[in-house]
């Protein structure tokens, strides 16, 4: 059974119309599919049916160990969003991007297709001065209306700077990580294990934290 109903399919078609470049979704799952692994794979496949610019490549976490290592995939389900010519901007989704996070997946696809982060000129300039790699993990739940702001901002930073990688992590699918990082409210953002905060911050405050994490 299709995950997306006709109404949502129409909206998605409209959102993805005229993508300026090709996008590849790498989906990581395993032979005996985990909770939401099958849904994540189906979701990617259904999206590729709605746009001829989207290609899907399904990998087995263990079977494609080398590929998983290249993209830093250590848990499933996972989606890596690649741009034109398989360019890796550092956009990752761990757990199914359903609920409010579905819009983050659509945004990530549009961003990867254009290569434009859409950040303000000030934020772009600030990120150009980033010195060290920053790994952003944004913990979310699928019923949190504020979470996509944090996820999309993190992904924008990843597109803007080659030093940034940004993961959406659906907290209820990875309770061990939620536990390890003390996730009791979402969105919770962890940067390089040393900076963390709750809430969807405005762009400038978010970028300031990012620069601190990469200093």
């Amino acid at each position: 059974m299709a995950l997306l109903d006709d109404h949502v399919r129409e909206e998605v078609k409209r959102e993805l119309a005229g993508l300026p470049g090709a996008v590849k979704l790498l989906v990581f799952t395993q032979e005996f599919e985990c909770d939401y692994c099958a849904e994540t794979r189906s979701l990617a496949e259904e999206l590729s049916e709605l746009s001829d610019r989207i290609e899907v490549e399904v990998h087995d976490l263990l079977g494609s160990k080398a590929v998983a290592e290249v993209y830093g995939i250590d848990k499933i389900p996972a989606i890596v969003v690649l741009g034109e010519g398989d360019r890796d901007y550092g956009i990752r989704f761990f757990g199914v991007p359903a609920g409010y996070e579905f819009s983050s997946l659509l945004e990530a696809i549009k961003m990867a297709a254009s290569g434009d982060s859409g950040l303000s000129p000030e934020a772009k300039e600030a990120l150009a001065g980033l010195k060290n790699p920053v790994h952003i993990q944004v913990f979310v739940t699928l019923t949190c209306p504020y979470c996509p702001m944090a996820v999309q901002l993190a992904h924008r930073c990843a597109v803007e700077s080659e030093l940034v990688r940004a993961d959406m992590i659906e907290a209820s699918e990875f309770p061990h990580l939620a536990n390890r990082y003390g996730v009791y409210a979402v969105p919770k953002v962890v940067m390089n294990e040393r900076v963390s905060f709750e809430g969807a911050l405005p762009e400038k405050a978010f970028v300031d934290y990012l620069l601190a994490a990469g200093s």
Partner: peptide, 8 residues
């Protein structure tokens, strides 16, 4: 699962 297409 529900899928919401939210604003840009």
């Amino acid at each position: 699962l529900k899928f919401l297409v939210a604003p840009e």
